[in-house]
Design a protein around this nucleic acid. Structure first.
Lengths: 202, 202
DNA sequence: ACTTCGTTGCACACTGCTGTGCAACCTACT
DNA sequence: AGTAGGTTGCACAGCAGTGTGCAACGAAGT
């Protein structure tokens, strides 16, 4: 009998298919958020019935994806946001690190509207709050502008990042930097400072 | 027999129901872009079958709505964009006037992704080009920043306007001004200039 | 060898929406 | 009065996707 820490070959290959389904689901849903379970299944080289074996309902799949996204992005944010740092510098650090993650989970942007929007929104809530806190800190130290309340401003700013990550520029070399600058600008950071902060980026 | 210029009472009431369907469709789809024809019909005080009498397919309805949006917004843009004016001033003028229209047609933002996205995109194309032209003019005269190509920058800027128009701030008194400032900032206009340009707005 | 179990392929019921056909109705027009 | 035509209510077919049930297969585990 295998101990708890190790995995039987069986359980391992089962986790592999599960992970492959999740991985492929991100790609497929990233292309077309309305893709059906069958589409995801065949893209993962598996039958539709198998997907339901791992995720009883479509919502479970979406929820798992969202969970992973929140976990990864929250980790990135807490890494990037050193408590002593300036808010704008922390923002640049966060966007630079979150960029590939955001592109990977770009489907969530589309999924927030629609059938599972409420469930996703609930899971994304804590992350939204952390972002709003960062923006508020920036506003309190007059690094960011006050033209919008922190919750809406943070949403708009990282919404733009997601949007640009989703556009044709995601491939372009300067996509990440352009997105960072754009979000900094709408946060009220002067252009000179914004370009300086992102000078070391591709 | 009625002449071409006047309408029979029959045709008039028929146009009334048609217009009412279109009007209500904007509201219903604005709340839930996935609302069915039945939902729209009953909201318009009419039977589903009647809607199909005016619009043979759902796409025809959406197309008509998009046509109207493009017409109205293009008119607003050409009014606001006096050829001699500064690009940033023209932008402010445009956003101020287009604000209520954008809020009215906010569905289209959600509908651009999805089944009819391609058709809508095609209809919105000319308007997108006009916007890109304005932004490019601003970049050429160094009023706007160059961190993004004009087509993407214009999309992002007025996407933000739509998004804020769609948020809770649409009711708030300062929503329009906040959205205008935000878009100006991400276009690269300095905050002092942005606040000055929008000083006369609510 | 025997068992366990993830996977497969197929069938099925169910839901929700789309678009159509048609008889009946009612009102405006002739 | 008689007709034309928008509207109605209902029925129907179709399609697409969801989620379930079940027998059978095959490889890992005992």
């Amino acid at each position: 009998m295998p101990t708890e820490s190790s995995e039987s070959s069986r359980a391992r290959s089962m986790n592999e298919t599960r992970d492959r389904i999740l991985e492929v689901a991100l790609e497929v849903l990233g292309e077309n958020p309305d893709a059906g379970m069958g589409e995801i299944a065949s893209a993962a080289g598996v039958v539709r019935r198998t997907v339901y074996g791992h995720f009883p309902a479509r919502l479970d799949l979406v929820r798992t994806l969202t969970d992973r996204a929140v976990t990864e992005m929250t980790a990135v944010l807490t890494e990037a946001d050193a408590p002593g740092a300036q808010a704008d510098a922390a923002w640049v650090e966060f966007i630079a690190r979150v960029w590939p993650v955001a592109h990977r989970y770009r489907v969530l942007l589309a999924l927030r509207r629609g059938e599972y929007g409420e469930a996703i929104h609930a899971l994304l809530g804590p992350l939204d709050e952390l972002l709003a806190d960062l923006v508020k800190r920036g506003q309190d130290s007059d690094v960011f502008a006050h033209h919008l309340p922190p919750d809406i401003l943070s949403q708009a700013a990282y919404g733009v990042v997601f949007a640009i990550a989703d556009s044709d520029l995601s491939n372009a070399t300067h996509g990440a930097r352009a997105a960072t600058i754009t979000s900094l600008l709408m946060l009220g950071v002067p252009e000179t400072r914004a370009t300086a902060l992102t000078a070391d980026q591709p």
